[in-house]
Design a binder for these strands. Structure first.
Length: 309
DNA sequence: AGCCAGGCTCTCG
DNA sequence: CGAGAGCATGGC
């Protein structure tokens, strides 16, 4: 049962690091599962779900699907290559860094990290809304609950995972049920509005890929609940844009302050100006800086895994 | 116990 | 324009 195919790996590429980043160095984050060297995702395709997994094997990515459908396998291969950002030019970014000591040091440990992606604009948008204002850890906990409760459960290699909740399921949930998932009343509104838009076809990825970065920002920020930061998150995580730099992001501001300004506080405008040094790879710089933070957070034992009892 | 988190809206001067 | 309040809740 099942089919598999092998995709040539891009170079450089650190599979373990990239999938670890995707799962917050914890092995699981929402619909993303990483166990025993295998990356699992339940992918939505048309009305159904394709259970896919990938692992690095020599110079290839071995992609598997549970069923026997040839189309499913092809879909899984394309999607995995997209999720793991096979198309991104890391070499250009590394060359640009040159004498950037601080980030080069981070890059030294993060070499081969690719900026992993969300499955859909809807997923990226919902995750971004959940993450507004609150800490990354709290956002992650809330996302776990949402995916566990409203995702589509499937099994792969005897492991349980969930496809990211469909727009239908989050709409059907109703406001009170989502409030019970620790969303604020506002966030419930925003998430359900996003679900409606997804069902109306407004979040179709092709529609956005035809637009420039700033057009996407302008379009998305017309919507109540979506500000610049949320739109930029979608650009990075769903559309895979290379040069996006969320200068309003508090964590990004602090880590740049720490690495480049001796901890002195900097404004959003300062960060935007400073970020120009990473053009046209500001999105990669963002991913590397976040990865630096995520790894350190886990290494320091902050937000330890759930207690046994 | 407070206070702050990988924002955003709304209100008021 | 800018400043400030409110939101939800996990972690320090």
């Amino acid at each position: 049962m099942g089919r598999s195919a092998r995709l040539p790996l891009p170079d450089p590429f650190d599979f373990h690091l990239t999938v670890s980043h995707q799962t917050y160095f914890r092995g699981r984050a929402g619909a993303d599962l990483y166990e025993d060297g295998v990356y699992y995702r339940a992918l939505r395709r048309d009305a159904g779900v394709v259970v896919a997994s990938a692992r690095a094997d020599g110079d290839a990515l071995e992609v598997r699907v549970a069923g026997d459908g040839e189309e499913d396998l092809r879909f899984a291969c394309e999607t995995m290559a997209w999720l793991l950002a096979f198309d991104v030019d890391l070499g250009g970014f590394y060359a640009l860094l040159g004498d950037d000591v601080a980030l080069s040091d981070a890059v030294g440990r993060l070499r081969g990290l690719r900026p992993p992606r969300a499955e859909s604009v809807f997923e990226a948008l919902v995750i971004a809304i959940l993450g507004q204002q609150i800490s990354a850890n709290v956002a992650r906990v809330i996302r776990e609950g949402l995916v566990a409760t409203y995702g589509t459960p499937v099994e792969a290699d005897g492991r349980l995972l969930n496809a990211f909740p469909s727009p239908e399921s989050l709409l059907a949930a109703g406001p009170d049920a989502l409030r019970a998932q620790k969303l604020s009343a506002r966030k419930v509104e925003y998430v359900q509005d996003a679900a409606r838009r997804a069902l109306d076809g407004e979040l179709d990825i092709a529609r956005f890929q035809a637009m420039e970065d700033e057009e996407v920002v302008a379009e998305l920020t017309k919507v109540r609940g979506i500000g610049r930061w949320t739109a930029e998150w979608v650009l990075l995580r769903a559309l895979g844009r290379a040069d996006v730099f969320p200068a309003g992001d508090l964590a990004l501001r602090r880590v740049v302050s720490e690495l480049y300004f001796g901890g002195a506080s900097i404004t959003e405008a300062d960060l935007a100006a400073f970020g120009r040094r990473w053009q046209p790879y500001r999105g990669l710089a963002t991913t590397y800086l976040f990865s630096f933070l995520r790894q350190r957070r886990v290494a320091q034992g902050g937000a330890a895994p759930a207690q046994p009892g």
